[in-house]
Nucleic acid binder design. Structure first.
Lengths: 417, 417
DNA sequence: GTAATATGTTTATCCATGGAACTAATAGGA
DNA sequence: TCCTATTAGTTCCATGGATAAACATATTAC
């Protein structure tokens, strides 16, 4: 809890009113009168708050739509488009880039590059990234968009909320001090651009990349995209590529544990008498359900696209069917354990698992219904769905994380004009 | 977020000041000047807040202790003793009762009864409980203590925050609507007492038992006792009696999942090819580490006290040593999975496991260091300790839960005098 | 055209914090 | 002993933001 002066009172109410407008359904935006009703504040206070939010460029009025009802028509209030943005960055195994979202979640600008990053030095990757950031920030500042923060998604174990990145097996990175590496990358950018650089843009980039830059696991951030898109509130998001990660979401909030390392399900024990994993333990989930293991079990090239397997399943090829059985049993055991521990009733399959959802569902459900206490003994119903958040979900989630934090915090600089 | 009027501002600051005083170390209580410094509020505001809290009976002044320092000595402020209390109730397998704690966590009154409850009807148990409540409330009201709420600890799966109790295997209870059963128990109490009843006390009991009564799993509540006693902030509390439960605590907050069912580790899969459990699945943790399984493996009577096993271990009896090996391996696998999923670095063993902590530690640690990713690859250090919270930890935790909720919420009735 | 109704603004008031001056209690030094 | 410096806590007035009621505005109903 923090000191509450009168300024905080104002900020709290600005924040309250804004988030109510932001959470309104698109087909039924709220008016000042609605807000006064909902919050219990007087109409006068709400009017004053809305005025402030409008002059800060955070809200717009729509044309009053004539209702079939007596009385003066209400003025619908909506979140302003294209005035404020957050930056979501992602460095992953085969691409890196940045995406800028405004308060409505719309993409204002982005820059992505396909590139195989394993065994690339962090400094090299960050040098590319800050160039992309510079481009995007240049475009946004020319449109006089206000930038409120940035977040970086990484495929590995990273400390919450500012790093370091402890380990990213698929990148071959270990103990990367993100703020540090980012700061030097910005310095190098400045030297690269020399006199061509716009000093104002460069200063903005430096400030965004060094002051309060958020860092988080890619799965946790991709899960935020899922929350925003489908209004899901509680689920486990499974992010399976080469490694397997997960995000735990309860009541719309990502649970990230003590350090930010929660959801590392790739090395859950499926069978203590199983084969030895690269990590040194026995019978880890990745030995059964990692992408390489799946493709190998199906008799396919481990580096091939997962769609080959989907096709093979549709043709009912025995090897593919056996592979699916192996994955759904092992992943089902691991997820049953997760559900018993964290108590959610929905699984969202992302990454390589997403296209396999329909194949995997029966086997997963069989494990869940037999192993989850809440299912067998309490009768809770479970759902398994596929993620539909598309490409660069980590970058989108990063930008959303910044927005969420700024909007939810009455002390954030969003309200300081 | 909730509407912030001027009254809320005041309440927030009352709450802020109070919690700073409550969290001060006992040997260095805070003064008004300290609070002004810490909060950033002016001395005038702090003085005014403290005056309100004192007249509400929430704070006391101690004698100014002369410091060896120039200037007027500060007046130490401490949480008032014995003026306000919360009620923590517990119904467990072999006892039930109630304990009242004041704001300092001291026991003001209690009433417990040993009783074998399995296969007792809920109505019977609740009838006993409300009698105990009536006794305690009578004593407290005669001392003019203000009662702010009540919470009930139950050994089973209960919905957060008001029930129902879905399943308590060890009591043989299922789908008990707690507010409902409690309400009828209070009615019956009124009839039992007849004209002997003090109407004011009866009204207080009815209000506490029906209006906002909290209900939670015993393990989650016992964990709160651990938080309060040892200032532990992040850990998994393992509550092993006949069944095995756990509570997940991160940063001082209990994580209870979507419904309040988180931490059900008794049926985590230890070995999918293992024996069939009573729940219907195979290789559940309870088959290896439940109290009955342990005692059987050690060649002891399953209903005997766990201390028999501790003694047998100290004598290095082969059967006991083998039993310990079985438990530490299976529990170690289950806890490794928990740690990978929820990211904490400390385990607290409670219930039957507490006296076995020293025997179990090496085996548990071996599993954790080999199976937890953060241990093998990031070098995180883990600790395993024994719970020392003693008897009726669930009841104490219940009372603490009420206090925590009341103290943390600026809108709670604590501040409404 | 007038009454009824709902939205939103203006104006005077209330309330909690802010700030500066003031009182209180101690140590140290002449 | 008395004066000064220092720290604690209070008093009193100013300020900022919410509140309440009156008012202006825009629509429907008759």
């Amino acid at each position: 809890m923090v000191r509450a002066g009168q300024r905080s009172l104002r900020d709290h109410n600005l924040c309250l009113v804004f988030s109510l407008i932001a959470s309104a359904p698109a087909d039924n935006p709220r008016s000042r009168a609605d807000l006064a009703e909902m919050t219990g504040l007087t109409k006068a206070t709400v009017s004053s708050l809305v005025t402030d939010l409008r002059t800060a460029g955070l809200l717009s009025e729509l044309e009053p739509v004539t209702p079939h009802r007596v009385g003066r028509p209400a003025v619908p209030l909506v979140v302003a488009e294209g005035t404020v943005a957050s930056l979501g960055m992602e460095i992953n195994v085969d691409f890196l880039g940045i995406r800028a979202l405004d308060l409505t979640g719309a993409i204002l600008a982005e820059s992505f590059e396909r590139r195989n990053l394993p065994d690339t030095e962090p400094a090299v990757a960050f040098a590319i990234l800050v160039h992309q950031v510079y481009d995007v920030v240049t475009r946004l500042t020319s449109d006089s968009v206000r930038l409120i923060g940035a977040c970086l998604a990484l495929p590995g174990i990273a400390d919450h909320p500012h790093g370091p990145l402890r380990l990213a097996p698929n990148l071959g990175w270990r103990d990367v001090d993100i703020p540090q590496v980012m700061a030097t990358a910005v310095d190098v950018l400045g030297q690269d651009l020399g006199t061509d650089a716009d000093p104002a843009v460069l200063a903005t980039v430096r400030s965004l990349m060094t002051d309060g830059l958020l860092v988080e696991n890619e799965a946790n951030l991709a899960a935020r995209t899922e929350i925003a898109k489908h209004q899901e509130k509680s689920f486990i998001y499974v992010s399976g590529e080469i490694g397997i990660g997960a995000a735990i979401v309860v009541d719309g909030r990502v649970f990230s544990g003590l350090h930010g390392w929660a959801g590392e399900i790739g090395h859950l024990v499926v069978d203590p008498r199983g084969p030895v994993c690269a990590c040194g333990a026995t019978g880890c989930l990745e030995m059964y359900a990692g992408k390489r293991a799946i493709m190998a079990a199906a008799g396919l090239d481990p580096d091939d696209c997962i769609d080959r397997l989907v096709e093979a399943c549709q043709r009912q090829e025995p090897a593919a069917v056996a592979a699916i059985a192996q994955v759904s049993e092992s992943l089902g055991i691991a997820l049953s354990n997760c559900i018993n521990i964290v108590d959610v009733n929905r699984i969202v399959l992302g990454g390589s698992f997403a296209p396999l959802t329909d194949c995997l569902r029966p086997g997963l459900m069989a494990q869940i219904t037999s192993r989850v206490l809440a299912s067998r003994l309490v009768g809770e119903e479970f759902e398994i769905g596929a993620s539909t958040t598309g490409c660069h979900a980590g970058a989108t989630g990063s930008a959303l994380a910044v927005l969420d934090q700024a909007v939810a915090d009455p002390a954030s600089k969003l309200w300081k004009v």
